[in-house]
Amino acid sequence: MSDTSPTIVRELIKKDLQIMKVPSLCYWLGGIGAILLAVFFGDAAGTIAFILFVSVLFGAGVHAAMQTVTEERREQNLPFIMSLPVTISDYTVAKMSANLMLVGTIWLTLSAASYVIFIGDVMPKGTIPFLTIILVAIFLAYVIILATTVVFQGLAPAIIAVVAANLGTQAYIWWISEFHDVRSTVNGMEAVWNNTYLTVIGLQVAAVCALIAFTFYSQSKKTEFL
């Protein structure tokens, strides 16, 4: 993106962050709440805490992508943005940066915080690699949704992406959990980073990068932008 316009891209990012400030904080607090729930009432509310935690991570991503991309188009704010001295690639850089920064920050801090449940012997440490896979998979699901909203713009593709990413991630996690290398280590007392874990995580990260690259590529091929 050699020809971007730094000042305006910065202003566009700032604007999106400002619009998403309050909802993002709510999601983040929800995530912290879920972690605290697991830490203090892990025995009784472990499942609820986990579902809440995953929903918060997933919800923050869906909300950000839908609000800053889909809603902006539906509300016909796009002509206003495109009347500014920006190109499609500036717009794409701004949208992707704002989203990845915002959701990335929420995802990273909550993910890091979630490892506190392994302090002491409440949870078997063998689950750490599997949890890492789940966390990266949720981020991948978010990037799929983001790429779809940016590339296809419309509400229908966005909803399809949300539903597909949600169901797909669940099926995918279940599938991974059936792997022999996973089943044999997940309940152990020590975290075992075998090749299966490393390969799956590596592939997920590669998929995230590929999707981001694909988004920029297909945006640059557009000849119609409203």
Binding site: E75, Q76, F80, S83, P85, V86
Partner: peptide, 14 residues
């Protein structure tokens, strides 16, 4: 576009 003011009928502010 630094020097153009564009307003279209389908344009809405936030």
């Amino acid at each position: 576009k630094w020097d153009i003011g564009f307003v279209s009928e389908d344009m809405r502010l936030y």
